[in-house]
Amino acid sequence: MDFGFIKKILDIISIWAIPVIFAVIPLTALIKKIPIYETFIDGAKEGFDVGVRIIPYLVAIFFAIGMFKESGAIDMLAQVLKPVLDIIHFPVDVIPLAIIRPLSGSGALGIMADIANQYGGDSYLARMAAVMVGSSETTLYVLAVYFGSVGIKKFRHAVLAGLIADAVGIFTAVFISRLFF
C-alpha cells in the first residue's frame, strides 16, 4: 500500500478542515436566518468559564505527575516491573515509556525521542516506541480536562476503563511491532 499518497490526502484534509468549518458554519447559520454574530458571542462566552473551571483539576494532576517524573520513580518502577515483563519478552527500554504514556503527553514524547536518538530513527525499538505513542492518549489529562470542564468529581469507572485500555494498547503495541518490524 502506498502510504505516501494516503498521507498526502490526509494532510490536505487536515490543512483544509478548519478553514472549511470556519466558512461552512456561519454560512449555514445565514441560510437558517440565525443571528450570526450574537450566537457566536453567546457560545464564546463559555470559553472563559471552562478555562477557569478546569484549573483545580489540572493543578491536582500536573502537581502529582510533575513530582513523579522528576523523582526517578519511573526508572525504579521499571526495575520492579522488569522481571515480570521479561517473561513475555517486553523490551526493557520501553518500560519507562509504557509507565509515562497515560500520565504525561510531553513526557512520553520526550522518552520516545530519547529511545529514537539512542538507537536511531529506523531502529526496531524506536518504531515500537512510536507505535506505543501514536496509538494511545494521555488518559489522566483527558479525564481531568473533560470532567473538570463540567465539574464532575466522581469519575466512576472511567479511570479504570481508560487505564485497562491503555495497558492492552501498550502490550498490543509490543506484539504488533514484533509482527511488523
Binding site: T28, D42, G43, A44, V50
Partner: peptide, 11 residues
C-alpha cells in the same frame, strides 16, 4: 476554547 465554542454554538 472561546473561538470553537462560538462556532459550535452557531453549528
Amino acid at each position: 476554547m472561546a473561538l470553537w465554542l462560538g462556532f459550535m454554538n452557531l453549528a
